[in-house]
């Protein structure tokens, strides 16, 4: 089952990059019939929007009709301390909400990278923010992606969409949900008074998709 999962993810990725060849579109469709489970860890500083990014991703999963779980590291947390959340999106019922290895790690600060890099499954992916990470990941059995979301957020003068830029980058390499579903998820996740901000977030997601770069 594990190898199928990786194969599915790999083909997903391949199709996302090329979007051509009938043959591969065909195998994409056949493989999709098998079950998909994506185990994601999102980790960074408190205040970076780590937990809400996970929540929006989980909502997008619900919109796709998938099973989801969202498990934060809760406790006596503080602003500036580290925060992380495990999100699982699956076609089947999610068994354990905590896992010891991940398909994708999104790391937004150096301590998180050091902690979660060894826990990414071989063939999995790691996404890091170029500004926050001084020493990039070294593993060569995983796909390493870099997104300069912090710089982009600073350039546009809108630091609050930082997490949406990263989410866009993630959805580019692992298209587990469409942007439309994420927007639907935003409608559910945000209170009505904030709905006017959704177009700005959608734009950030699309911009994030352009920003992400493969590093190995």
């Amino acid at each position: 089952m594990k190898s199928e999962k990786f194969a599915t993810a790999a083909v997903y990725q391949w199709v996302a990059h090329t979007r051509s060849s009938k043959f591969f579109t065909f195998s994409f469709l056949t493989l999709q019939l098998r079950t998909m489970t994506e185990e994601i860890i999102i980790s960074g500083f408190g205040g970076q929007g780590v937990l809400s990014m996970g929540k929006i991703l989980a909502y997008a999963g619900i919109m796709e009709g998938k099973e989801v779980s969202w498990m934060p590291a809760y406790g006596p947390e503080q602003r500036g301390g580290t925060a992380n959340v495990t999100v699982i999106v699956s076609d089947d019922m999610v068994s354990s909400p905590i896992v010891s290895s991940y398909d994708t790690a999104i790391v937004l600060n150096q301590p998180s990278l050091e902690k979660f890099e060894p826990q990414v499954k071989p063939g999995g992916a790691i996404i890091y923010d170029g500004h926050s990470i001084i020493q990039p990941p070294k593993r060569d059995d995983i796909n390493v992606y870099r997104i300069d979301a912090m710089e982009e957020a600073a350039r546009t003068g809108n630091s609050k969409v930082f997490n949406m830029l990263v989410l866009g980058g993630y959805l580019k390499v692992r298209p587990i949900a469409t942007v439309e579903d994420v927007v639907k998820g935003l409608h559910k996740a945000l209170p009505e008074r904030h709905h006017k901000l959704i177009p700005m977030n959608e734009e950030a997601i699309r911009r994030g998709m352009e920003l992400i770069k493969k590093m190995n």
Partner: peptide, 10 residues
């Protein structure tokens, strides 16, 4: 338990 209390699901 605290984990089911704190985690989010559909």
């Amino acid at each position: 338990d605290g984990m089911i209390g704190q985690m989010m699901e559909k």
